[in-house]
Structure formats: C-alpha cells, structure tokens
C-alpha cells in the first residue's frame, strides 16, 4: 500500500526564512505598513513572549485543544458507530441517505445561532459546532471503509464459522480502520476551523477568542501569534495522524 510521507527537511525551511526576512524588511525596517494594520515580526515576537510569560497563551491553547478533542471524541463515537451500522445495513443506509446528504453540506458555522440558544456561552457551543463539522466526514469515511471490505475476507471468515458479531469485530472493523483514520484526519482539520469560529462568537476563552479580542485592542501581534499557533497545532495533528496511518496501512 502507499506510504505516507510528510518529512520536513532543510529545504522546507528555505521559504519560511525568506518570507520572514521580507516581512521584517517591509514592516520593521522600512515600516511600510502601520502595525495596527499588520504587525512586524518584532511585534509578534514581543506579543508571544508576553503571552507565554503570563501563561495566557498556554491557557488558551489548552482551552482550545480541550474543545477540539472533546468535540472530536463525541463526533468519533457517533460517526464510527453509525458508520459501521449504516455500512453494514443497506436498508438503514437507504433510509438515512437523504437526511445525511442534506445535513452534510451545511457549513458547521451555520449552527452557531442554535448552538448559542441551546448551550449558551462557554465550551458548549464550540463543542457542538465541532461535533457538527466532524461527524459527517467520520461517518462517510466509516461507511466507505465498511463497503470496501474485501468480500473474499468476509467469505473466508464465514467458512471458518464466524458469527455476525465476530464478522463485525474481527473483519469489518479492522478492515475499515484505515478509512476511519483517514476520516479522523480530515475531521481534525475541520475541528480546528470550527473551534476558532465558535470561539469568536459564543465563547469567552480559547485562541479564537484571543485572536478576536486582541485585534479590537489593536494588539495585532497577539492576533498573529494566535494564527500561527493554530497552524502549528494543525501540523502536529497532521503528523500524529500520518504516523498512525503509517502503522495501520498494511
């Protein structure tokens, strides 16, 4: 099977370094852009040190990660469970098909108004929006994984006398696992996006909240710190899931 590689080498560092140098020259050396429009690297570094020393950054990162993982966990439990059931039963899949097809394209942030009405302010709305954003990719890839189970493997297990439940646990689930993990990998990206949107509206904590509030205080340095932190969290998750995929793609 195909190998997943996302190795970062010295070459991958060249462009970021060039960009930072240009950025430094434009914003800090010649001050072509006022810092309330866009901060220079020095502003960003200062903001980073201030946020890191005060502990606010770690609190916000922790807060955001907590919501992401909580929302993902709920979405995984629901998405994988129903994915296996619907993948297994053609009849139930047909029954649910239209509902899923209509709900799926609704952008998760469209759920923001209801999430606030139902869950108020706090982690509730963000978790709900993450759930709505992640559950469909996980559901669809799980259904796909079940469908792609090699019929020869199912027949082999049948010829050993596997019961329906054994078929599920010993054949269907392990064989769908690579597809489920691919779904989770897609979902974690969506989860990050949803969290930030959710935090900008129905929340009083997290990186999204920090990004929004610092701009209104003209602290654009903190805004960029927040944005970069999200990017870095994204890379880390991507790396983790790629490692998992390497292990389970046989």
């Amino acid at each position: 099977m195909k190998k997943f590689r996302n190795e970062y080498t010295k070459e991958t560092l060249i462009l970021p370094i060039i960009l930072i140098i240009i950025w430094y020259i434009v914003c800090d050396v010649f001050q072509l852009i006022p810092s309330f429009m866009f901060p220079g690297p020095t502003d960003v570094a200062n903001s980073f040190v201030r946020l890191a020393v005060s502990g606010k950054l770690f609190k916000d990162v922790f807060d955001t990660l907590y919501k992401v993982l909580f929302g993902m966990l709920l979405a995984s439990v629901v998405g994988i469970t129903f994915g296996i059931i619907l993948g297994w039963s053609k009849r139930l899949e047909t029954l649910c098909k239209l509902v899923i097809s209509i709900l799926r394209p609704i952008p998760p942030i469209a759920w923001i108004p209801f999430s606030i009405i139902w869950f108020g302010i706090g982690i509730g709305p963000a978790v709900f929006i993450i759930f709505m954003g992640c559950v469909f990719p996980i559901l669809i890839s799980t259904i796909d994984g079940v469908h792609r189970t090699d019929p020869v493997l199912i027949e082999a297990a049948e010829s050993f006398g596997a019961s329906n439940s054994q078929m599920l646990t010993e054949v269907i689930v392990p064989s769908s696992l690579p597809y489920i993990v691919s779904g989770l990998k897609v979902a974690i990206g969506i989860a990050l996006m949803c969290t930030i949107s959710g935090e900008m509206i129905g929340s009083s904590s997290g990186i999204g909240y920090m990004i929004l509030t610092s701009t209104s205080l003209f602290d654009t340095g903190s805004t960029v710190v927040g944005m970069l932190v999200i990017g870095i969290i994204g890379i880390i998750f991507d790396y983790i899931f790629t490692k998992i995929q390497e292990r389970i793609f046989w």
């Binding site: 090699d150 020869v152 027949e155 082999a156 297990a157 006398g161 696992l177 389970i248 046989w250």
Partner: peptide, 26 residues
Amino acid sequence: GFIFQNYSLFPWLNVIDNVIFGLNIN
C-alpha cells in the same frame, strides 16, 4: 474449509494470527 485462489489473508493480522483465526473464532 474453503481455500481461495489468492489474497485471502487478513492483512492486519500477522502470519500466526492468520493461521489461528478459525480456532480463535471457535
């Protein structure tokens, strides 16, 4: 018992776990 033409091993199990699959199931 049924032995297929090809490609009927469970790719997520190692050789010995493949061999004992039927015994485990039973």
